[in-house]
Amino acid sequence: MNKKLNSLLFYLLLTIAIFAASSIIKAQNIPEKNHTNDQWKKVFKDSFYQSDEDPPITPKDGTTRSGSLCLVSPGLIEAEGKIWNTRPTFIWQGKLEGISIRPANSQEVLWAETVQDNQQIIIYDGESLKPGHTYYWRVFDSTASEYSFPTLRVTFRVMDVLERQVITQELEKLDTVLKQAKATPETIALAKVKFLAERNLFSDALSEAFTVKNPSTELEDFRSNILERFCPTSKGNGK
């Protein structure tokens, strides 16, 4: 009798847990069956598309005079250039030779990387950047020598410790719920993109979208739309 009762209680608790996870997913407006469908289009329209009446983003100038090189993120599509990630993803359109990071109050180069042909993103893999600190990321064209004369320089700032902790905890909860629901990596990325974009952390949102492996056609279209959105001139001139 006790075994039957224990089994009944187990299945009841399991049902409640599954229902709770499903409710959270619905509340986040995330596809339950790992089908992103038109969700990427909706995120692009809601968070990144600039209308004449109510532009959600006003990007800073991150292009060369010829328009052949266009920097997308980080630091160019947020009003304050503020990011959450201490290992950001750098996204651009066009050709460049190298990239480096240094603190805004120092000449020390923290990290430098040579860029491969046709490479359009690179993930920072140096020592974690410090919350509350401001940095420059600098890019160099093919004529630069030993990364001494940057073609472009962009300022960005990692958010303060307490503010960052709140975002980190919420992202961890979201990640846990979705993994328990057996969501695909792309569905998880979609949820995080929406979460971060809603908090005006657009560079962090793009980092999630541009680092998904084996992207769907919809996600590839989203990436193309982002580059067209922020770099229409450079895209028209070709890579």
Rank of each mutant, 00 (worst) to 15 (best):
R199L: 06
R164N: 11
A183M: 12
S203N: 05
L227H: 12
F156I: 02
P232G: 12
I188D: 02
W137D: 05
E172R: 09
K182L: 12
T134I: 12
L129S: 02
Q120G: 00
T187R: 04
L219R: 08
R164Y: 05
I122L: 13
P232Y: 13
P232K: 14
T151M: 13
E198Q: 14
K192H: 15
K192F: 10
T184E: 10
G126F: 00
L178V: 02
S203I: 07
R164Q: 12
E228V: 08
R223Y: 06
A197T: 12
L152Y: 05
P131V: 04
P150M: 06
F195D: 09
E163I: 07
L174W: 01
S128D: 12
E163H: 11
T151H: 08
E220C: 00
E220D: 10
F195Q: 11
K173V: 07
Y147L: 15
K179T: 06
Y136S: 04
A144S: 15
D175Q: 11
N118L: 08
S224M: 04
P150C: 02
L174K: 10
K192T: 07
K235D: 14
E163D: 13
N225L: 12
T217K: 13
E146H: 06
R153H: 01
K235G: 15
K213F: 10
M159P: 05
E127L: 04
V115A: 08
N200T: 13
Q165N: 14
V158M: 06
T143Q: 10
E113P: 00
N214T: 13
E172P: 00
L178M: 11
I122W: 11
L174Q: 12
Q120F: 08
A181M: 11
V115D: 03
A205P: 09
L178P: 05
D175M: 10
I167P: 03
G238Q: 03
R138W: 02
V212F: 06
D125V: 02
E220N: 08
T217N: 12
Q169D: 08
S142Q: 15
